[in-house]
Simulated scan of single mutants.
Amino acid sequence: MPNHPTQTGWLFTPEAKSELSAESAQDFFDSPGLFKTMIESIQDGVSVLSPDLSIRYMNATMRHIYADTQEPLGKKCYSVYHSLSAPCGECPSLLCLQTKKAQTSTVRYDRDGRESNWHQIFSIPVLNPKNEVVLIMEYVRDVTFQNKMVENMNALAQRFETLEYQNKLLADILKQKRQSEEELEATINANVEKFIRPSLEYLKKTVDPGNVDMVSGLIDEIVYPITKKRSTAAASLTPRELQVASLIKEGFSSKEIADSLCVTQKAVDFHRLNIRKKLKLTRDVNLRSYLAVHL
């Protein structure tokens, strides 16, 4: 069985045999061996030190942890517990000697090349009537698991902060990209309205208006990938008119469209007329050519 603490606690359950017998509960509490029996039975480590930090007593848990140390009693605690030649820098027992008050500290447990563990040590002074420290009781608890949990939580918190910062940075980049696209779109639209539209209106007075409308449609198609704004003329068509318009665009005749939609040719011609009206096309504009550009 390993003789050192694990991340989740001691790998040891003391099997202290009570030497007590009592006629009543009160007799049990009055028994002089009660204190020692309780100390021997708990799973946390307990040791008693002299003022010079020599070990006077170790409970069953401490004896189990340091079972590979020969005759630890009488030796310095820092030598047995930490393999050091001088007291630990964070030794709560030294502070306990100075203040004559209970002290606590969490110290690293490194021994024989094993994985580092952490002990929380509570040092409690035992005072004589002259208020002098005659003994120090050390209560040792393995807090390795808790410390590692805190370390993991801190690491996760740092990763979360990093991800949060990266997400914010990405959001700012996307926002700038959208702003740039909107500015580009606004510039293109402004240039089209300022320079191209007036030119087309002028051309309508001198050349065939139908051809000008065709050129206007081509311009709309050129700028559409950027502006995403098609002519709103097609939006005015009904679903049936859009069906007819799509078939006209593909080159189907009125009879073929009528057969495809299971309607009369007269109904198709009626839809053709409505499409031309809604698109405001004059007689000289070829409907199929117009739809090929605008639909």
Rank of each mutant, 00 (worst) to 15 (best):
M1D: 07
P5K: 01
T13W: 00
P14R: 04
P14V: 07
S18H: 01
S18V: 03
S21P: 00
E23I: 11
F28C: 07
F29L: 12
S31G: 07
P32W: 08
F35I: 06
V46K: 02
V48P: 06
L49A: 04
L53K: 14
N59H: 02
A60H: 06
A60D: 04
T61D: 03
M62I: 05
I65A: 10
I65V: 08
Y66M: 07
S85I: 03
A86H: 07
E90K: 15
P92S: 09
L95G: 07
L97I: 01
Q103A: 00
T104G: 05
T106H: 05
V107I: 14
Y109A: 01
R114P: 03
E115G: 14
P129Q: 15
P129M: 11
L135P: 00
I136D: 00
M137Y: 09
Y139E: 01
K148F: 02
K148M: 05
M149P: 03
M149Y: 09
V150M: 03
V150W: 00
A155D: 05
A155H: 02
Q158S: 07
K168N: 12
D172W: 12
R178G: 12
Q179T: 10
E181T: 05
E181I: 08
L184R: 10
T187I: 14
I188Q: 07
N189Q: 11
K194P: 01
R197M: 09
R197F: 05
Y202F: 11
Y202W: 07
L203T: 10
D208F: 14
D208I: 13
G210T: 02
V212Y: 04
D213K: 15
M214I: 15
V215H: 09
I219Y: 02
I219P: 04
I222G: 12
V223D: 01
Y224L: 07
T227I: 13
S231K: 12
A235D: 15
P239Y: 06
R240Q: 08
V244P: 02
K249W: 05
K255S: 14
I257Y: 02
A258V: 06
L261D: 07
C262T: 08
C262A: 14
K266T: 15
V268K: 06
D269M: 15
F270I: 10
R272V: 10
K280G: 08
K280T: 06
T282M: 10
R283V: 06
S289L: 14
S289G: 07
S289M: 12
H294D: 03
L295R: 04
